[in-house]
């Protein structure tokens, strides 16, 4: 029967053409052609009307199924299209919004990293004054007035008895003056040195220092603590060594080097030692009962090693082209 054929043909051409309709305009044209008031489906119904009554029930059913099928097919495609209808109208090649890009200064990032390593083994964080008296910066730390050790730290004076602290160790003295042992603290902040400014030295730098005082803290424990720190900071496989050195406030003293395999050389990263008994006496601790260790490191130095920065002045220039890399 010819109507059967027409239905079949319509089905095929409908699917074929629908799959080819890409844009919303194509789809609209398609809709008019097939499903519109004068479309092909409508003309089929017109033909149906002309059929003898005996055939009407069968074709009526079939045509209704066809109408539903086609409409559904069309709606499906249209639905998919409309979900990403914007995409077809968007020039995806355009850049997105350029959002302002904030960041935390690299020195702050390193300081935070160091702080959290020590916090994870129970150290508290302490702060203290950047201008301090000679006593807290030197004398209490076993650096008498006319001692050659004063040459180790070129000092800025505010007045003959007040200095820009040369290390954060003054905070250790303030801490011990106000608190009884045991102590497990780190102190951080800016320290000042009266040195010529160059690519490797600046008039100030940031320090993190640690202090542990109790009845048993030993050299072995100091080594263990700093090994833990170095591994956390620089990686588990970092090769390191403790080398005898001298600081007035510690005895025995050591310097810690880590191996730089790129440069094939040792790099000094921190100083440490057992707190000098004179320091303990100065703050009123019983140095027969209590002992402990202290350590200190320069943040710039560590940041330079970690990020491969060659000029210390970059940290204080705040060139956006530098900062944006962190």
């Amino acid at each position: 029967m010819s109507l059967d054929k027409t239905i079949k043909g319509l089905k095929t051409s409908f699917s074929k053409e629908l799959s080819k309709s890409k844009t919303s305009k194509d789809l609209e044209n398609f809709r008019i052609k097939y499903l519109g008031r004068n479309g092909q489906l409508a003309s089929l119904f017109e033909e149906f009307n002309k059929l003898p009554v005996s055939e009407k029930p069968r074709f009526g059913k079939e045509l209704n199924i066809l109408k539903n099928q086609l409409t559904e097919q069309y709606q499906n495609v249209l639905g998919n299209k409309s979900e990403n209808s914007a995409s077809s109208d968007i020039d995806f090649s355009l850049p997105g919004y350029n959002l302002p890009d904030g960041n935390i200064h690299p020195l702050e990032q390193i300081t935070s990293e160091i702080k959290s390593i020590f916090q994870s083994i129970g150290f508290s964080v302490a702060y203290g004054p950047e201008i301090d008296d000679d006593y807290h910066n030197f004398e209490a730390l076993n650096v008498p007035k006319h001692h050659p050790a004063r040459d180790m730290q070129d000092t800025f004076f505010i007045n003959p008895n007040a200095v820009l602290r040369t290390h954060t160790s003054n905070v250790q003295i303030h801490l011990m003056e106000n608190q009884d042992p045991p102590l497990r603290h780190i102190c951080c902040g800016r320290v000042f040195r009266n040195e010529a400014v160059s690519y490797k030295s600046f008039c100030l730098f940031n320090q993190v220092e640690g202090l542990v005082i109790n009845e048993t803290s030993s050299f072995a424990e100091m080594k263990g603590t700093l090994e833990y720190f170095v591994q956390e900071m620089f990686g588990k496989d970092t090769k390191m060594r403790f080398r005898p050195s001298y600081f007035p406030f510690t005895e025995p003293s050591a310097e810690v080097d880590i191996w730089n395999s790129k440069l094939n050389q040792w790099m000094e990263i921190l100083g440490c030692g057992m707190v000098n008994p004179n320091v303990l006496t100065n703050v009123g601790y019983d140095n027969e009962k209590y002992q402990g260790f202290a350590f200190g490191m320069g943040i710039e130095r560590i940041a330079m090693i970690k990020y491969g920065i060659k000029d210390i002045r970059l940290f204080y220039q705040n060139d956006i082209r530098f900062l944006e890399q962190f």
Binding site: P100, E130, C203, L323
Partner: peptide, 20 residues
């Protein structure tokens, strides 16, 4: 520390300047 991160998340860059 939260304040610093807050500012950085708003698009600010943190600066470290010479005290002298």
């Amino acid at each position: 520390s939260s304040l610093k991160h807050h500012l950085s998340s708003l698009g600010f860059r943190q600066s470290y300047n010479n005290s002298l």
